[in-house]
């Protein structure tokens, strides 16, 4: 149970192969079956109860697909990435500074509107997003239909429907990840448009930020965070950029920091 899972994670953190071919972050709201997707992909046995806020530590697992070793990082289930809680901050920091090669956002097909909120937030931070529309079997039972091709077109990122519990769609998800990481498939996420004042302010701040961020972090996203008065992100970015000057190991550093939050 939990104790075992925690131990397993400790071991994983140590054994986590630096020679992994790709690191994938798994984000999503609570109760979207995110952990089931994680287990389905990695086979690592991690407990998945049906209650909110269950994943309180980062779980990592590996799988091999087309001879590539992929490391999967299960982020805490959150409603948002605006960093109101430790969980949200961890998830945000990993996506922002951990520089995963792709981020899979797991959404609940029976409750798409609410879940897209998080997906849109992730898409503001990184273009390398795959949307995994999970629980399509539940949706079918509830007579809810989702037009996935249309959704992919509207979002500008790949969309894969899955029913992780029944192991449906997981191979397609692996293929989508493979395409994004190794075939460098381009996405064109459609950014959220804000009202005129905000857009005007962003247009002013964004160019000023760019020289500092040097393309490491999305400048529009940072501009928005500065506008909404998020102070935590400023300190984190300062730390991150300084670290990066010293060592050329962004991924490891990002992970280290995230792991430190739990120590």
């Amino acid at each position: 149970m939990k104790g075992l899972a925690v131990d397993a994670r400790g071991v994983f953190a140590k054994l986590n192969p630096a020679h992994s071919d790709g690191v994938i972050a798994l984000a999503g709201n609570p109760n979207t079956g995110k952990s089931t997707v994680f287990n389905g992909l990695t086979g690592l046995n991690q407990h998945t109860g049906n209650w909110p806020g269950k994943t309180v530590v980062l779980a990592k697992g590996n799988y091999r697909y087309k001879s590539k070793l992929i490391t999967l990082v299960d982020l805490p289930g959150t409603y948002s990435l605006l960093a109101n809680s430790a969980d949200e901050q961890v998830a945000r920091d990993f996506i922002c500074f951990g520089k995963p090669d792709a981020t899979v956002v797991v959404v609940d097909a029976t409750c798409l509107e609410r879940n897209l909120n998080l997906a849109l937030q992730v898409m503001e931070m990184t273009p390398k997003v795959i949307l995994c529309v999970n629980l399509i079997d539940e949706a079918k039972r509830k007579k809810i239909e989702i037009d996935c091709p249309k959704l992919a077109e509207l979002l500008g990122v790949p969309v894969v429907p899955t029913a992780a519990r029944e192991k449906v769609g997981l191979d397609k998800l692996k293929e989508a990840i493979h395409q994004m990481v190794f075939a460098h498939q381009q996405t064109r996420p459609r950014p959220v448009r804000y009202n005129q004042e905000i857009e005007a302010a962003v247009a002013k701040i964004q160019p000023e930020l760019e020289p500092y961020l040097r393309g490491k972090i999305d400048a529009r996203w940072v501009a928005l965070r500065l506008l909404d008065g998020d102070t935590t992100i400023i300190t984190e970015i300062k730390k991150y950029l300084r670290v990066e000057n010293v060592e050329k190991a962004p991924r490891e550093q990002g992970e280290l920091k995230v792991v430190k939050c739990y120590k």
């Binding site: 937030q121 989702i146 037009d147 959704l151």
Partner: peptide, 18 residues
């Protein structure tokens, strides 16, 4: 604004018959 966009997208792709 984010929630609004989420709703607009959902409205276009979700069909409920339940």
């Amino acid at each position: 604004a984010i929630y609004d966009q989420a709703r607009q997208i959902a409205d276009q792709v979700v069909r409920r018959r339940g």
